[in-house]
Write a protein that binds this DNA or RNA. Structure first.
Lengths: 336, 336
DNA sequence: TTGTACGCGTTATCAT
DNA sequence: ATGATAACGCGTACAA
């Protein structure tokens, strides 16, 4: 691998000149510049980034932490992060934390080792110590989640109002007993969606029923299991709103396995609009989040913080959209 | 951020001793070691990894290249890669190439900049120039794909025999007209699966029908579109084998949208056994690949190459499994 | 415009 | 057992 010295020797100039050709070409006379460029090409020279990093004391790496990249929701957010970061000359290191304290600690250590220039966190727990510890060391941006009263920049939708919106859609279809399969209560956005659900009930004059609220873990299996639990209630729900699409798909499966029809007997709604949502049968009513854009925007925000640019709007809220499909209605006029 | 000098000063030793405490503790007397450790703790010192990298001329980074991490198949392979790499003290840089020449080139450049110690490639095109260019610079391992006659270490299943197996399963259910929705013909494993499909037909005395073979791109939508095309044939198939689960799910959707029943009228089989495969209705018959293990194993292999250890078996073939579910049969005895 | 020389924070060699 | 010092490859202040 050719170094800057090899290029300098071949072009018969000093290493300083070679370096300048790359960083400040205008400070080098066209003639020598030409010479140097030729030498670079001849040797296929690339500056060693490890040396650049050390010298500049920055790595051009962003760490993207998420609970699990296998989750299709996160993986699309991640693509937004990845693509925008690459455009800006940054590399992305992914970390799946599995919401595991040990692993989280490893990533904090990475920051202590000056490993990255910033962090994007795509989920947040009620327990904010982890976030605080990260933010204390490097610029941090929250994607997907907004923590009320928190100082950290964030990009998200309004989970509460979106949940309210989709719950009201179910109520408008005539449902009086609407169940909710929530996400883990330790996660902030789970709480926001649950809150939105409850608000919709109250605003519609319905009373909540403890038995109709179950806490899942965002997996297909938990949706399946909890729907079964709901269906075996003596007074089962006629509609189920799951806090994400995977739990909703699991719930639909449980319902159909029992020979019950969706949406005629039980309506099902999800959240996120993952790709497969429109390809299950019946297709799934859900809230569409601009996942890719959330990822992109969080990188934009983070880069501003890294470059000490002022943020005119630290907490960005993007638009969501209610997507009505066949899992909640047979009325073709409602379905997009 | 404290440096080695700060620690040395506080512990009243030289930086060499501090460094030794970390790398070769046995060469330092217990007494001074104790002193140094205390100073480290007091300053919360971590060696700067950029400096370590430069000095050691290695980055402890592995690049994992895949067409698109959004694909649930790759994302689980990726988790295997990520977890095993972390155990070994390596970090993972993900690159989604989208099979785009421009992006591929960027990653080659990363290697030229000494950015990574090795590369794991999770898909391979018939055009081997990209692979060759990568392998020329850094140790490379292929995950998911085996290139016949290639010198590169790889971890995969036997795609050909697996495709043969699942096609035969369909034929055993009495189907005479079995269609295949293939993956892009430029991808090696698509060809392998197509070959297996054809072999099964021939071995069963069935003749192939050009019209029953359609080329998709592994997306839900392409499965949907191509199934529609197959169904509108004057002599439509009674079974469809798609080269991955997503196309199979898209195909099922197309069939069901037409009011046709799966599996009674048309049977559908996929490939990969992604999570959602058992949660669609009817549940999807497919080939289970040990995705997570493929990822792990590819890291093991790569680390051996990086450390110049001999490989007793450069091309590793893992076991796959036929998972029969309700999309191909109503016989409860067959379904696991 | 170009070159010299120092420093970024480590690790490792060679003395002591 | 410990310390001084030379790299690792690059960027830049300063000198020429």
């Amino acid at each position: 691998m050719a170094t800057i010295h090899d290029v300098a020797k071949l072009a018969k100039v000093s290493i300083a000149t070679v370096s300048r050709v790359l960083s400040h070409p205008e400070k080098v006379s066209p003639k020598t510049r030409q010479l140097v460029v030729e030498a670079m090409n001849q040797l296929d020279y690339r500056p060693n980034s490890m040396a650049q990093n050390l010298r500049r004391l920055q790595s051009n790496i962003i760490i993207a932490l998420m609970p699990d990249i296998k989750n299709p929701f996160f993986s699309e957010v991640f693509r937004g992060i990845e693509d925008r970061a690459r455009e800006a000359g940054f590399k992305i290191l992914v970390g799946s934390t599995d919401r595991n304290k040990e692993k989280e600690k490893e990533y904090i250590n990475l920051l202590k080792e000056s490993w990255a220039d910033g962090v994007i966190l795509t989920t947040a727990e009620i327990d904010r110590r982890f976030i605080d510890e990260l933010a204390q060391r490097r610029p941090l941006v929250l994607a997907c989640e907004y923590i009320p009263g928190s100082p950290y920049p964030s990009v998200s939708i309004d989970n509460e109002s979106a949940a309210r919106k989709i719950t009201k859609h179910l109520i408008l279809q005539g449902h009086k007993r609407v169940a909710h399969i929530a996400g883990p209560s330790s996660i902030i956005l789970s709480v926001a969606r649950l809150t939105g659900y409850l608000q919709a009930l109250h605003q519609s004059g319905l009373i909540e029923d403890e038995a109709l609220i179950q806490e899942g873990d965002f997996t297909l299996q938990s949706g399946y299991d909890l729907a079964n639990k709901l269906l075996s209630l003596k007074n089962p729900p006629t509609a189920i709103f799951a806090a994400n699409d995977e739990m909703a798909i699991g719930a639909m499966k449980a319902i159909q396995d029992k020979g019950i029809r969706v949406p005629e007997d039980v309506a099902v709604a999800g959240f996120d609009d993952i790709n497969v949502a429109s390809f299950v049968t019946p297709s799934l009513t859900t809230i569409r989040q601009p996942r890719y854009k959330i990822g992109q925007t969080s990188v934009d925000l983070l880069l501003k913080v890294i470059n000490h640019e002022p943020l005119d709007q630290p907490q960005i809220v993007l638009e969501d959209e209610l997507i009505v499909r066949h899992s909640t209605t047979l009325n073709p006029e409602l379905v997009m």
